Simulated assay, not measured.
Amino acid sequence: MTNLLHNIGYFFREAKTIVRLNLLSNMVSLISTGLIFFILAMVVAGWWISIDVIEVIQGEAEINVYFDESLNAADLQDLIKGIGSIEGVREVRLVDEKEAYARMEEILGEEARVLEFFEDNPFNPFIEVKIHLEQITSILEKLTSTQDVAYVRDNQEILERLRSLSRVLEFSGYLAAVAVGISTLVIVSHMIRLEIYNNREQINTLRLLGAPESFIGLPFLIVGILLTLSGGLVAASMSHLVLNQIYAQMAGPLPFIPLPPFAAFARKLAALIILLSIGLGLTGSLVGLSSEKGN
């Protein structure tokens, strides 16, 4: 180890020479890895944003409980208190007829004038129940068996679709990460094998002089890591610019979508891509070296 550290300058000079001798091939490899990591960054960014948005929507998941309107105020409060005590219920509040009417006016917008044809308020009061989505089944079972509950509007189909979409996005993110990892390993290991083949005479000379395999292989290892690290830095820079434009575009027409804070999100994504690029570069280089060991 001491000998390797003492010769670190030599290893980097050799790595520089290896890159310069096959500059065009290395540039193509760098661009390829940069594009691969950029695609990964966009997939991961979309995955993270989608999951974040879905989590926010899930956090607002609610069901509406309609009750027997003959209940007096005391019994109604007891019902609300009982619903609030159900496991998985986060918040309970009463929505009266006026608020229900106002909400429908807001939803209908310009078409709200149709409500003027009704002499009386057509909407009934209900209890708005915000829940933890993963416990919706048990909550519904308890609500439907609760006395004085006339009807439960659960929106279960929509909420279940949100849960399914969340799982699909998570699976897609992992699948993209695996695909990019395999592609990068193949590119880097192939490049290292090619570099070893192109420098086989110098390598054989070093072996005849008694140089250990670690001494011979370290410059190639450095080349592989620098290649993927450079590709990761390029991808991180490109993804930062693209995400900045996406945030700017969505802030105008779609301000209601709860995007994560840009600065922290961009730093997190860049750190992931750079760490992956180093790890994949190291792994791919070791694979390439091991496959050519002894040749």
Rank of each mutant, 00 (worst) to 15 (best):
S277T: 00
L115D: 01
V188K: 03
I18Q: 12
S25N: 08
S32V: 01
K16M: 10
H190R: 09
V178S: 06
I203D: 00
I107Q: 12
S239E: 03
V234G: 10
L226S: 08
L94Y: 06
F262D: 11
A270T: 03
P125V: 11
R93Y: 08
A263L: 13
L4H: 12
A150K: 12
P261H: 04
F123R: 04
E62W: 09
I136F: 10
F123L: 09
E116G: 03
G210K: 05
V168S: 13
K16A: 12
S166C: 11
L21K: 15
A236W: 00
E14W: 05
Q249K: 13
I182Y: 03
E106N: 12
I225F: 03
A179N: 02
A266I: 07
I63L: 13
N199T: 09
I278C: 09
R13H: 12
A112Q: 05
F215S: 02
V129W: 03
Y66V: 01
I127G: 06
F37P: 06
D75F: 06
A73Y: 06
P260E: 06
E14L: 07
L280H: 02
N198V: 15
N198T: 13
L229C: 04
L23D: 06
V43C: 14
S172R: 12
I63V: 12
P125Y: 08
G279R: 02
E157W: 08
V242I: 10
L143A: 00
F38W: 09
G281C: 07
A263I: 14
E62A: 15
V180R: 02
R200T: 04
E134H: 11
E111I: 10
L24D: 07
L221R: 02
E292C: 11
E292D: 14
E213P: 04
A177T: 12
P122K: 09
L23C: 05
V186E: 05
S237F: 15
L5V: 09
I158N: 11
E170S: 11
N204H: 13
N121P: 01
Q249L: 14
L169M: 09
K130S: 13
S230H: 04
A264N: 15
S237C: 13
I36R: 02
Q156R: 15
E119P: 05
L24I: 12
L286R: 04
A41V: 02
L133W: 08
L227T: 04
A251C: 05
N295W: 10
T205D: 09
I49P: 04
V186R: 06
T205V: 11
S138Q: 12
I31T: 04
L206V: 07
V92P: 03
G181Q: 05
G59P: 05
V56G: 12
L233W: 04
E110L: 10
E111K: 13
V44L: 15
S172M: 14
A45H: 02
E195K: 14
L108C: 05
P260C: 07
M238H: 07
L218A: 08
I274S: 02
L275V: 12
I216G: 01
E87K: 15
A45G: 07
A150I: 07
N64H: 14
T184V: 10
H240R: 14
I54E: 00
K81N: 11
V242Y: 06
N244M: 15
L108Y: 00
L23W: 09
I63N: 08
R13S: 14
M238A: 08
G252Y: 12
